[in-house]
Write a protein that binds this DNA or RNA. Structure first.
Lengths: 222, 222
DNA sequence: AAGTGGTCTAGACCACCTT
DNA sequence: AGGTGGTCTAGACCACTTA
């Protein structure tokens, strides 16, 4: 009888669960923009105590979803066009910096892996498997970011991804956007193969701006 | 006798005090790179309990000084050339994005204020007042960043400033660096006045790279 | 001038890494 | 299995905001 299950009930912390829950609630409009979030209420709502709520709010502040000030608590940002536009511009600046560095140093194996990810993306697209496409898309960008060899920059982008994911989950993609992504990515790989920094930079800039404008259009159409 | 002093003993939180203390200790080498920081020890060292320490570590993780993982604790990063180089590259990408936006939209009054800050900087330089120069330098960049109209990007840069400040406090500036900064800033204002985005971008890139290389040289010379 | 609510402390709990 | 140490809960404390 020595085979006792020792699997942790949740390897995730309460903080991260609460973090995801608040993020989802904010994006789905459970709280009004500008509303003051009270720790005690949130603690009750998610059945935890004050500290995990505090720490979740701190993380969400880093993502930009709420603003905190000492002894004053948290208020939620409005997720409007300006917010989304600024967020994409910030991400674009970082991703473009990374892709230029990647163009200088990326290795043959990493390029092969990128191409494989692209194939995966298109296969998923052919089957209409949205989840797989989303995952391959993220994987593609993440590989390039990692090739840029600046772990703090990558961490920053990773940290904001959950928010992008949640927004895309709610608003979806515009018509033809999936194909455009595919074409852009092929061109990016070609530029990296050619070690053409300027071209990689230009493509990344355009790709990010197009992603931003697509999401803004989706938001404008509700 | 109704005039009782109701001033708070410390409007700062324990978290922020501990945060500054750990940052200073890390930069001055009180902990070895890669060392595991134990919350209980830190709590004792700074005479607070576990929670402020946890939250301070979380903030320092956002600054890049430590790495945390759930149920495993924090280890401190090594503040070496690669770390500093990557940090400056990241900041450069963000600042350059902001200056381009500033070049598009900056107002006459903001330009006047920039020039005034430049004069302040040079006056401080003439008197050899290092603190005033440092403060005017920061003010100059902050005004441009704010003109870029992306509050999250500005918050990110602000959040990393304490670290830059601490590093400069320890390593100082190279010979002639203060004059170079002054010249660069004059050129930047001229480009903004001319609304020359490309020039502003090029100057910002160069200025940031020069700052990075100056600090790296200072670190190499101890 | 009292109430509200964020912050901090002490201690319990439990995940993780030994032996 | 035991020990170490990070995480969470309950409650005290006190800064900030109303009237």
């Amino acid at each position: 009888m020595s085979h006792i299950d020792t699997t942790p009930l949740s390897t995730l912390t309460s903080t991260s669960r609460v973090c995801g829950a608040i993020r989802a609630d904010v994006i789905h409009g459970a709280f009004a923009p500008g509303q003051r979030l009270k720790i005690a209420e949130l603690a009750k709502r998610y059945s935890v105590s004050a500290i995990p709520v505090r720490e979740a709010l701190a993380q969400l502040e880093a993502e930009g979803l709420v603003q905190m000030s000492a002894h004053k608590g948290a208020i939620i940002r409005s997720i409007d066009a300006r917010f989304v536009s600024n967020m994409y511009d910030l991400r674009s600046a970082i991703e473009t910096m990374l892709i230029v560095r990647a163009a200088r140093s990326i290795r043959r194996e990493a390029l092969m892996s990128l191409t494989a990810t692209l194939d995966l993306y298109e296969a998923a697209g052919a089957k209409g498997d949205t989840m797989a496409m989303l995952s391959a898309n993220r994987d593609f960008h993440r590989q390039i970011n990692l090739a840029g060899d600046n772990e703090d920059a990558v961490r920053l982008l990773d940290q904001g991804w959950e928010l992008i994911h949640a927004l895309r989950h709610k608003f979806g993609y515009g018509p033809g956007r999936w194909q455009q992504i595919s074409e852009d990515h092929r061109a990016v790989v070609a530029a990296l193969e050619a070690r053409d920094e300027a071209q990689a930079m230009a493509l990344s800039d355009r790709h990010c701006a197009a992603a931003r404008d697509d999401l803004l259009r989706q938001m404008a159409n509700q």
